[in-house]
Amino acid sequence: MANHEAVEAALARLVPVALSQGAQSEIEAIIDELAADAPRVERHAGRIVSGWAWMAGRPAWWRRTGMGIGVAAALTGGIWLAGNGTPEKHRSVEVASVDFSDGVVLVGESDRVSSMIDIGWSEDYDGAAMQTMHLSVVGENSFLDEETGIVMQVSEPREEFILMPVSTF
């Protein structure tokens, strides 16, 4: 029987096959598309700065609004993969006026479930049976521009999959 070191050495001599040229090109094209669509968001010493250059030259309240939208987009992007909560038709969180930028205040945020589909059983990492639900969720953030008194609502639709253990068969 070959020892483990010998098997490891033999395995290491095998090289994974490369992606096909077509698949490689397709993925690179997707990366280019994603990069073209993505708003540039940079972090500098704990604060978030929107990179939307087209804001330049706009009125001050307009720029602040854009800043608020940029922050909202960054926040919603950050929770994109966090779909592990319990299904709720409407989840609303009142925020105690979180101030993200000069003059624009987050005054409310909520998650609205627009559709919920039972897509059957699947397996988790350990092979346990799980009931899978597909949710279409719309996150809605309300921002108040203190200067004009205008309240803006930023909607961010996203897809979530929720796995729930199956305990009875």
């Binding site: 096909s20 397709e26 997707i30 990366i31 993505a38 968001v41 940079e42 960054a74 994109w80």
Partner: peptide
């Protein structure tokens, strides 16, 4: 199939791109 495997890689990369948005891509 190999084609399915390549589709999985592609899907994972798209999900990863969105996931990495908060980390500056």
């Amino acid at each position: 199939t190999r084609e399915d495997a390549e589709d999985l890689v592609q899907e994972a990369i798209i999900r990863m791109w969105n996931h990495q948005a908060d980390k500056g891509y």
